[in-house]
Write a protein that binds this DNA or RNA. Structure first.
Length: 454
DNA sequence: CGCGTTTGACCGGCGC
DNA sequence: GCGCCGGTCAAACGCG
């Protein structure tokens, strides 16, 4: 959505723009605001452009006004100069105050926009599901509903035909996962096909400080390859989920080239089986992030803006990149606050979905794995020595994200898009939790600590 | 002996 | 068309 239209749509007092551009000593978000209030929005600024001149001694000034005031000052007497400087400084001070107020208003507008965006997304996805219902029906018998969202459900939905090896080798597998024909059955709606195609490619990258070779995210992984990636002296390891026979989920683990204490884990795909609670958090986060990417694939969507919109409280740790090859959500857990505080807080009161769009299953303890999060250091930059601690870190971080009401809205949208009207997820959820309670203790990742060679 | 890792080879996509 | 590079395969190997 165009920002100008957004402001108009939200009824923002557009006359603020000109003032905003006058000065922004704040800095970090300056580019956004300048762009926001650029002169390109003439139709929104033209009304106000005369006002600063009419009240040149008032609060509202812009760059031109400053220039006009400063240049004549050079010709003034030496005695008047300090006076004007003092006035200017006073004005600057007032402008700074106003700038802060405007920032607050901008934050409010952004919040409103987020809500609207999420609502729109939800409506769109609901509409899609009315067009193409029940693509998950084929999956449901295989893996009970409570598992994570089937964003990458195509392999799962085809698991009846794609028996056994999930290989994608051209020499051994004719049913390539990436083939559009495999994305959905003939009953599937075209728009959803496209959505799933994009979501299948979506990845979620988690950056976390860890001395361990991999982060324990609650799933079982089997290493199937290792490569030296260009531009990084550290090898990249490839893991495949082995909790189910044909689970399509893969992950890549690589240390950051700049800071080798940072472990970058990239998840791709969606599990087609029940997950341990410990894995649920990450998987759900992954799925929701993929859903966000879906929404970001809408035309003219600004992904960075989208990232801030979807994860407003996590903007410092979550970024969305649509740059090739795959759209990727990066969750940066290497930064402590502000999310560290959220991550370290007791995980029990996880605010989940707002009632209207919340599928029943997510009002259950879908993220019960987060309850394992006991490490007070979760989300901080302190390296955690054990895999369990890392699991806590990841889970707690995921809790921090999912606890964000805006994120849960996005999550609701994701669930709505995937599950649609399908409702009896709760039973499976409880089954799922029963199934995996024990596995959550063994942290279920690959036991081989030598898998990550340097 | 079974399971998981290692590692060189292979394949496909992409840029030039 | 060619080469680079990411991703995957599969035989070899190690470990319990």
């Amino acid at each position: 959505m165009d920002k100008g239209h957004l402001l108009a749509f939200l009824g923002l007092p557009l006359h603020l723009h000109g003032r905003m551009s006058a000065d922004d000593p704040g800095g970090s978000r300056r580019s956004v605001e300048v762009d926001f209030f650029s002169d390109d929005n003439k139709q929104t600024c033209v009304v106000e452009r005369d006002e600063p001149r009419a009240a040149s001694s008032g609060l509202a000034i812009n760059k031109e006004d400053l220039t006009i005031n400063l240049l004549p000052a050079a010709t003034h007497d030496e005695e008047t100069k300090p006076k004007e400087e003092v006035e200017l400084q006073a004005e600057l001070g007032r402008m700074n105050e106003e700038n802060h107020r405007l920032r607050g208003m901008l934050a409010q507008v952004t919040t409103s926009y987020q809500a609207l965006q999420m609502h729109l997304l939800t409506l769109m996805q609901q509409a899609q599901h009315q067009q193409a219902p029940a693509p998950l029906a084929a999956v449901a018998p295989i893996a009970p509903p409570p598992r994570q969202l089937q964003l990458d459900q195509q392999p799962a939905s085809n698991s009846s035909t794609e028996v056994g090896s999930p290989r994608r080798s051209s020499s051994t597998a004719n049913n390539k996962e990436d083939s559009p024909e495999a994305t959905g059955g003939p009953a599937e709606g075209r728009p959803q096909q496209l959505d799933q195609a994009s979501m299948r490619k979506a990845r979620v990258s988690v950056r976390a400080r860890s001395e361990a070779p991999i982060i324990a995210d609650g799933c079982q992984w089997r290493k199937y390859g290792q490569k030296m990636a260009k531009g990084n002296p550290c090898p990249r390891a490839y893991y495949r989920c082995t909790m189910a026979n044909a689970c399509p989920v893969r992950k890549q683990v690589q240390r950051c080239a700049d800071d080798r204490s940072i472990l970058i884990t990239t998840y791709e795909g969606t599990h087609n089986h029940p997950l341990p609670p410990a894995a649920m958090a990450m998987a759900s986060t992954t799925s929701a992030a993929a859903s966000m990417l879906l929404s970001g694939s809408m035309p003219s969507a600004d992904n960075s803006f989208l990232a801030r919109a979807v994860l407003p409280c996590s903007s410092s740790m979550a970024t969305i990149s649509a740059s090739a090859p795959f759209p990727t959500v990066t969750l940066d857990l290497t930064h402590g606050p502000p999310t560290a505080a959220a991550a370290a807080r007791p995980p029990a009161p996880l605010p989940l979905l707002p009632p209207p769009q919340a599928p029943p299953l997510y009002n259950q303890s879908k993220f019960s794995g987060l309850h394992m999060s006991s490490s007070p250091d979760a989300g901080t930059t302190t390296p955690l020595p054990t895999g369990i601690g890392l699991a806590d870190t990841v889970s707690a971080a995921a809790a921090a994200i999912t606890a964000d009401p805006n994120f849960t809205v996005a999550l609701a949208a994701a669930i709505t898009s995937i599950i649609g009207g399908g409702g009896q997820q709760q039973h499976g959820s409880s089954n799922n939790n029963n199934n995996v309670t024990s596995s959550s203790n063994n942290t279920a990742t690959s036991n081989n600590t030598n898998s990550e060679t340097q």
